[in-house]
C-alpha cells in the first residue's frame, strides 16, 4: 500500500530535504504533504487522509508537542503514528513527546538511512 505522509516543519529547507530523503528511502509513498506549523497541519488533516506525520518540535503558532497532543485528543486522528524530527535532543523533550504518544524520534541532522530505519517498522 502506498502511504500519504505529512511533513510539519517551519523551515521550507527541511521540508524540501525531507521530500527528497523520503523518496530515497524506497518506502512506497503516494503523496508527501507539507505544513509550516501545527495549525496548518490540523487544517490540512481536515481534507487529507495521511498515514504518518513527521513533525518538528520548535515551531511558531503551534509547536510539535501541541500538535501531537491535539492529534492524540482526536478520535479520528489519534491512530495516526507521529514521529518527531527535531534538534531538541534533550531527554526532557524526548520524554514529553513519548508520553504524549509519539512513536519515534529522529534528531537533526539526519541521514536518509536514519529516516528509513525509523519508518520501515511503522508504515
Amino acid at each position: 500500500m502506498e502511504s500519504d505522509i505529512l511533513v510539519v516543519d517551519d523551515s521550507a529547507a527541511i521540508r524540501k530535504i525531507l521530500q527528497r530523503v523520503l523518496r530515497q528511502t524506497g518506502i512506497a509513498i503516494k503523496d508527501i504533504h507539507e505544513a509550516g506549523d501545527g495549525k496548518e497541519a490540523l487544517e490540512l488533516l481536515k481534507s487529507h487522509k495521511v498515514h504518518l506525520v513527521l513533525s518538528d518540535i520548535n515551531m511558531p503558532n503551534m509547536d510539535g508537542l501541541q500538535l501531537l497532543a491535539a492529534l492524540k485528543a482526536s478520535a479520528e486522528w489519534a491512530p495516526i503514528p507521529v514521529v518527531m524530527i527535531t534538534t531538541e535532543g534533550g531527554e526532557a523533550k524526548v520524554s514529553e513527546a513519548v508520553n504524549l504518544g509519539a512513536v519515534g524520534y529522529v534528531r537533526k541532522p539526519f541521514t536518509a538511512d536514519q529516516i528509513k530505519e525509523k519508518l520501515v517498522g511503522i508504515l
Binding site: 523551515s11 527541511i14 520548535n58 527535531t86 535532543g89 534533550g90 541532522p109
Partner: peptide, 20 residues
C-alpha cells in the same frame, strides 16, 4: 528567501547540537 531559510536551519541544527 530560500538561501536565508537554509542558513536559518543550519543555525538551528548547529546551535541545537551545541545546546544538547
Amino acid at each position: 528567501e530560500e538561501v536565508l531559510d537554509a542558513v536559518a536551519e543550519l543555525t538551528n541544527m548547529i546551535i541545537g547540537g551545541v545546546k544538547t
